[in-house]
């Protein structure tokens, strides 16, 4: 085992880590927007919307991410759109994450005790205000720890976008492996970077969970 390999490629790995983080960030943010819509559909009273929401979650959680990524890649190619791989990568991550985030949000909404919206209704609140002032603030707070967890999962899943050629941590590790003929050091190096990122995120998660407990919201 030659640790110097890792040290020499430190710069490349750091750059690649940045790409990994950027791609994952884009994925989770877009995924949140889509996920919120899917969640709204899932809890809607209109049956057709409910079915669409349920189908979305079922499909995007059921089909493996790798298949989804390749599908988007070939789907876009089939229709003649020449999109850069990064678009396929981010949309793949986003659409997949949206399904998980929709369920997180739905769980959070259910976790808000019913009595609170009841009290609002009894006081004469309009539906919109019950949502805006009572349900949403609390649902968002409740969903932050699981959303941070989802971000950690997405970061690991982002290693799959290496197959469409994005120069993130896994791909760069592969490159280093083939250039230096030292796959052990290359992948250990990549792995260490992933671990480091995870450690920092897990730390954020712990802080967030502690701070959100103050103010009375469990």
């Amino acid at each position: 085992m030659k640790p110097e390999v890792i040290l020499h490629s430190f710069g490349y790995l750091t750059e690649a880590a940045g790409v990994t983080i950027a791609v994952s960030l884009a994925g989770i943010v877009i995924g949140f927007a889509v996920g919120a819509l899917v969640c709204a559909a899932r809890v809607s009273h209109r049956l057709s919307l409910k079915r669409i929401g349920t189908l979305y979650v079922s499909v995007f959680r059921g089909v493996p991410l790798l298949v989804q990524l390749l599908f988007i890649y070939y789907f876009l190619a089939e229709f003649g759109l020449d999109v850069p791989a990064i678009v396929a990568a981010v949309s793949g991550l986003a659409l997949s994450s949206a399904a998980y985030q929709a369920e997180i949000l739905r769980g959070a909404l259910n976790a808000v005790p019913r009595g609170q919206s009841e009290a609002a209704v009894a006081l004469g609140f309009a539906g919109v205000d019950v949502w805006r002032r009572i349900l949403m603030p609390q649902a968002l707070r409740i969903s932050i720890p699981p959303l941070i967890n989802e971000f950690i999962l997405l970061l690991k899943a982002s290693s799959l976008v290496s197959v469409v050629g994005i120069a993130e941590l896994t791909r760069v590790s592969m490159n280093i492996a083939s250039l230096t003929y030292r796959p052990l050091e290359a992948y250990v190096g990549g792995g260490l970077f992933y671990l480091a990122i995870n450690l920092v995120l897990a730390g954020f998660g712990a802080i967030a969970e502690r701070r959100l407990a103050i103010g009375g919201v469990r």
């Binding site: 690991k156 290693s159 030292r182 796959p183 992948y187 250990v188 992933y194």
Partner: peptide, 22 residues
């Protein structure tokens, strides 16, 4: 921590490509 904190693909590469070196 290691096996939960790193991507599965990286672990596979490590075993398959890096394995012979150990």
């Amino acid at each position: 921590e290691i096996f939960r904190g790193t991507p599965f693909l990286v672990q596979l590469f490590l075993l398959y490509a890096g394995g012979p070196y150990v």
